[in-house]
Simulated assay, not measured.
Amino acid sequence: MDKLQRHPLLQVTEDDVRKAREFYNLDENRISESLEAIGAWFKKQDHLADVYRLMYPDLLERLFLMSRGSVEMTKNKLDKLFTMRGMMPDICLNMTYPEFVELNDWLIYVPLPKLNPADQTRVMMTQVISGKADDWNMLAYMRYSFLVGEFRLHYDYSLGDRYVIDLQNTTFSLVTKLNPIILKKAEILCTEGFGTKIKGIHFLNAPSFVDKLVAIVKQGLRGKVANRLHVHRTYEDFHNEISKEILPKEYGGDGPSCIKLAELWRDTLKTKEAEKIIEINNKLISDETKRMNGKFNEEYFGIPGSFRSLTVD
């Protein structure tokens, strides 16, 4: 545990690490041997060699964990991830923190500091700031979520993610601004590229138009993830999924408020450390001109045709 980087906004205890490793039947020796084998393979991939030289060592272990502790699955995910990042620059590349200063005026998006004890997931909270619903920008939201998510990869050690969206301050204009094509691209990159296990998407404080909103969101999600979308009518129902002890106080929990967490994350993402991570992340893409077996087959991860078939009534 001591060799893993830690961050106070992403608390990971020794017990959390133990549980995650036991879930995939991993120990330190197996992890070390597996990472060595993955690294040896990585360096021999001409189209990924520059990525390997740039990557932080801890990042490889996180991606190995997200690949269920499988060497072959990790190789597959690495190839997918760094190829897909290059194919989706609108979602995850060319980022700097100043890009999101305006977003922070209308949105709060923060990971909760403690893991959900029931399933070792990291919970991501979204709030629209009161009176700012008309400023909603789907692409900016997705880009910021990947900025935070890729920063998390250097410190986190979870078995999956849960996304909580508080709809209290939203208006019907949000429905008109949802873009299922952007959502689908983001979900594919998240689950097929990074290997994130999305354990749940939770809507709170549902407005009268929530059914319309849910219908559009489901168009941008594949079946398994769409089936994990929940609309909670009460906080008591919500607490059955996510433990009160890790939730912010405005949701009946014991943790710091989302506003306080947002301030801490803003300060964190302005640091030289974060700036360096973001700068390196912008370069983590495959060089397809050096791929040994020709052009990457897009059908490998199911993108072709999936964007063009969406309709929004």
Results as ranks from 00 to 15, higher is better:
residue 80 K to G: 00
residue 82 F to L: 08
residue 83 T to I: 07
residue 84 M to P: 00
residue 85 R to Q: 08
residue 86 G to Q: 06
residue 91 I to A: 03
residue 91 I to C: 03
residue 93 L to T: 06
residue 93 L to V: 01
residue 94 N to E: 10
residue 95 M to H: 10
residue 95 M to F: 11
residue 96 T to D: 15
residue 98 P to T: 08
residue 99 E to T: 00
residue 103 L to I: 01
residue 108 I to Y: 09
residue 114 K to S: 12
residue 116 N to A: 11
residue 116 N to S: 11
residue 117 P to A: 09
residue 120 Q to I: 03
residue 121 T to W: 06
residue 121 T to R: 08
residue 123 V to K: 01
residue 127 Q to F: 06
residue 128 V to C: 11
residue 133 A to N: 04
residue 135 D to N: 14
residue 135 D to Y: 14
residue 135 D to M: 15
residue 137 N to D: 15
residue 139 L to I: 10
residue 140 A to G: 03
residue 141 Y to T: 10
residue 144 Y to F: 15
residue 144 Y to W: 09
residue 145 S to H: 10
residue 146 F to M: 13
residue 148 V to N: 10
residue 152 R to W: 09
residue 153 L to A: 08
residue 154 H to F: 05
residue 155 Y to H: 12
residue 158 S to E: 12
residue 159 L to G: 03
residue 164 V to M: 05
residue 165 I to L: 14
residue 166 D to Q: 05
residue 167 L to N: 04
residue 169 N to C: 09
residue 170 T to R: 07
residue 171 T to L: 01
residue 171 T to I: 02
residue 172 F to T: 13
residue 173 S to C: 02
residue 178 L to S: 02
residue 178 L to Y: 08
residue 182 I to S: 00
residue 182 I to F: 13
residue 184 K to L: 15
residue 184 K to M: 15
residue 185 K to A: 07
residue 185 K to Q: 14
residue 185 K to N: 07
